[in-house]
Design a protein around this nucleic acid. Structure first.
Length: 718
RNA sequence: GGCGAAGUAGCUCAGCUGGUUAGAGCGUACGACUCAUAAUCGUAAGGUCGGCGGUUCGACCCCGCCCUUCGCUACCA
């Protein structure tokens, strides 16, 4: 086995979010398991993480909470630390990017890049919106793609041909926020010349993957990024909260977060280990870098950060194995802080369950190949059946039985072929789990450990020691000793996953110091005496878990009552006075619609594919009249014409009722809001069933008569 | 509408570069055992591997089309 030093990192969590279970399993916990394995294995190991603190999001949060960005970061950094501590995450150092050390290293890497000619400086006519008074982010600029001529390519990428772009390349750029043509104010920015590094990046990707066996999703993402064609990437921004740019003329700018954040791994190491950090980061021959993260972070670790390293010309330790997970969902929904969906680190602390149970569940359900799903029912099942009934019970039944018949006696016995064969199997399985851990197959490794437990239970059952003890007590004793051997291996192997539980098991077996290094070395066991047996965990109770479930459902933002949502809508009959094609959009019409009482609106609708202009002219249609207006390709749309949609078919909701008639739900008071958002509109699940427009099965009316469709029997209203 | 990912037993998931009867755990049913946290052990039921075509001697795995779900995005509003 390789004796390389193991440098392990977990993706830097962004500071202003409370980490949820998905975040935790994705990076910090997975990396912790591997780091613990490596230490137990006797490898020289360093596990580094930090909070990522710079950027717009923090500035915004600071404004919202009326604090300085630094105060925001201080507060949340501490929160992160508390959560990770609760999860028994054992960092060798947990740093933060808003630290002088970080500034120094970021700047020095920048200087290297500049010295080596990988920095481009462009004083471009950068898109600046005079109206909104800000420089526009790439994607907020649109225009004509220089490659394929597509007329609304975004500033970062063209949707038609897929090429990566810069906003400056676009012909006829436009501000997407206000629709005005942005002023192209001269701003100077620094760019990392990725094209010049493309070849080395490809070489790096291939050789690193060959040696380190990247997670498949990481390899394919990296490949497609590079093969799509790389463009120079700006590494500075017009912001305040960030790493200052050490260059004249850049006093008002900072480095872009994506540039400085990965450098946080290095700076955190340097801060934690000022004397020895270079032994890790500047010793690629003897160091293997393992990086853990969720899938959204892949490009930065496989392309962007390696590019900075390669371009700096220094002999950095570079990515060896990338372990990128998919996402964990919560009860078939996405985790969402804003909607209050999910279990967050702070919740776990409050619930007060043994942390190893959380670790077990998360690792057992680790989203390795595809997204996986947290559910309270699954939580109960997995912990009770797969862990407690299996491992917990095996430990207990073995120790209780042994204690009863051989009190205070060491685990020594003459092993017969029956035990010897069994132990060979145990050895094989234990080695298998060890190798799976070595290869960072964390979920598989855990499953192997559970299989070991099942094997033990079967051995116990088949041998019937409760009978044997009466006739051949020494034979029964040998059996139990063999099972103690198995439990010892389980105890050792469990250490990376459930450190506290591992220690408890090994202590009960009288060998608390056993590690991965003496896996399957049973020589000390014959002197070991069991402690008084104790239950590892009592089983989770259905009632308790139901309680949690209810509590967390209650915390969620209540889903909007359809009737309440409907009450806010102001849907009226309007007559199409005028209709013409949108000047800049081939799929849109621009209509003038009379809603009665002199209220005449301009409304944009995407109906070109379904209707001719003359089919609609003069017709009366249903219109959402209190919808917040929105610019569509430069034309302000002051409402929305309703239609029924099913698959690719669409039918506009026409009406014979007088202009201005309001859509009603019999028996329901309506109190239209002055203005609603498009989200509020869609919160109301209007449908057509059997040619009838309805809400929750109740038909809607216009002046007392039902609203119907002609060709589409059912569909959604949009 | 565009791009991307995915669709394998009731549930959660494995199935590498195509090759005999498609796997595991949980759950369920029945049986066994009783040392143990009503735990354990055995047996069984259960899948047209989203659908339809195609390539092939042969496809869950390759190609095309379609359906569904999810994500991102848009000339959805």
């Amino acid at each position: 086995m390789t004796m390389a030093k193991k440098l392990i990192t977990s993706a830097l969590p962004y500071v202003n979010n409370v980490p949820h279970l998905g975040n935790i399993i994705g990076c910090v916990l997975s990396a912790d398991v591997y780091a613990r394995f490596c230490r137990s294995q006797g490898y020289e190991t360093l596990y580094i993480c930090a909070t990522d603190e710079y950027g717009t999001a923090t500035e915004k949060k600071a404004r919202d909470e009326n604090m300085t960005p630094q105060e925001v970061c201080d507060k949340y950094h501490e929160l992160h630390q508390k959560v990770y501590q609760a999860f028994d995450i054992q960092f060798d150092f947990f740093g933060r990017t808003s630290h002088p050390e970080h500034i120094e290293i970021t700047q020095s890497i920048y200087r290297d890049l500049e010295k080596n000619g990988y920095i481009l400086e462009q004083t471009t006519e950068q898109t600046y919106c005079a109206h909104d008074q800000l420089f526009l982010a790439d994607r907020y600029v649109e225009g004509v793609c220089p490659h394929c001529g597509y007329d609304s390519a975004r500033g970062d990428q063209c949707d038609q041909c897929g090429k990566l772009l810069q906003p400056t390349e676009l012909k006829e750029p436009k501000c997407q926020i206000c629709g005005n043509a942005p002023i192209t104010k001269a701003t100077t920015h620094l760019y990392l010349d990725l094209p010049q590094l493309a070849e080395s990046l490809t070489r790096f990707r291939e050789s690193s993957n060959d040696q380190g066996h990247w997670a498949p999703n990481a390899y394919s993402v990296a490949k497609s990024w590079i093969e799509r064609g790389l463009l120079p990437r700006p590494i500075t921004r017009d912001l305040k909260w960030g790493v200052p740019v050490p260059k004249k003329g850049y006093e008002d700018k900072v480095f872009y977060v994506w540039f400085d954040a990965p450098i946080g791994y290095i700076s955190a190491t340097k801060r934690g280990f000022p004397e020895t950090w270079q032994d890790w980061w500047m010793d690629p021959q003897n160091t293997e870098l393992y990086q853990f993260m969720a899938k959204d972070n892949i490009p930065f670790h496989t392309v962007v950060f390696p590019a900075s390293q390669l371009g700096s010309g220094r002999d950095w330790t570079m990515l060896h194995h990338i372990n990128s997970t998919e996402y964990l969902n919560y009860e078939n929904d996405k985790f969402s802080k804003s909607r209050g969906i999910g279990v967050f680190g702070t919740d776990v602390i409050d619930l007060g369950l043994p942390i190893d149970l959380w670790r077990f569940y998360l690792l057992f359900n680790r989203p390795e190949r595809s997204d996986s799903n947290f559910s309270w029912d699954g939580f109960l099942e997995d912990i009770n059946s797969n862990f407690i009934d299996n491992i917990g019970n095996l430990l207990n039944r073995v120790l209780v039985f042994y204690q009863k018949h051989f009190p205070a006696q060491p685990f020594a016995a003459e092993l017969s072929p029956r035990e010897q064969d069994f132990l060979k199997e145990v050895q094989q399985e234990a080695q298998k789990a060890r190798q799976q851990l070595e290869k960072v197959q964390l979920k598989e490794g855990l499953k192997t450990i559970l299989a070991l437990g099942r094997r033990g239970n079967k051995f116990f059952h088949d041998a019937e020691p409760w009978k044997e003890i009466k006739t051949q007590p020494e034979r029964a004793r040998a059996l139990l000793v063999a099972l103690v051997c198995l439990l010892r291996e389980v105890g050792i192997l469990l250490f990376p996953y459930m450190p506290t539980t591992s220690k408890r098991i090994l202590t009960l077996l009288g060998e608390p110091t056993a590690t991965m290094q003496n896996l399957c070395d049973w020589s000390k066991l014959s002197q070991a005496v069991a402690s008084k047996p104790e239950i590892l965990f009592k089983k989770l109770e259905k009632k308790e878990i139901e309680g949690f479930k209810a509590k967390f459902m209650g915390k969620q933002e209540p889903s909007v009552n359809p009737l309440v949502a409907f009450a806010k809508l102001d849907i009226k009959v309007g007559e199409v006075l005028e209709i013409k094609p949108h000047p800049k959009a081939e799929r849109l019409f621009v209509e003038k619609i009379d809603l009665g009482g002199g209220d005449i609106r301009t409304i944009v609708s995407g109906l070109v594919k379904h209707y001719q202009a003359e089919d609609l002219l003069g017709k009366k249609v249903l219109v959402v009249s209190n919808l917040k207006s929105a610019p569509l390709r430069g034309v302000e749309s002051q409402g929305m014409v309703l239609a029924c949609e099913k698959k690719k078919k669409l039918e506009v909701l026409f009406s014979q009722a007088p202009v201005g008639t309001r859509l009603e739900l019999p028996g329901q008071e309506v109190a239209p809001a002055a203005e609603i958002t498009i989200e509020e509109f869609f919160a109301c699940p209007l449908r057509v069933e059997e040619f009838q427009v309805q809400l929750e099965g109740k038909g809607l009316t216009l002046g007392g008569s039902p609203v119907t469709t002609l060709s589409l029997a059912e569909g959604k209203i949009a």
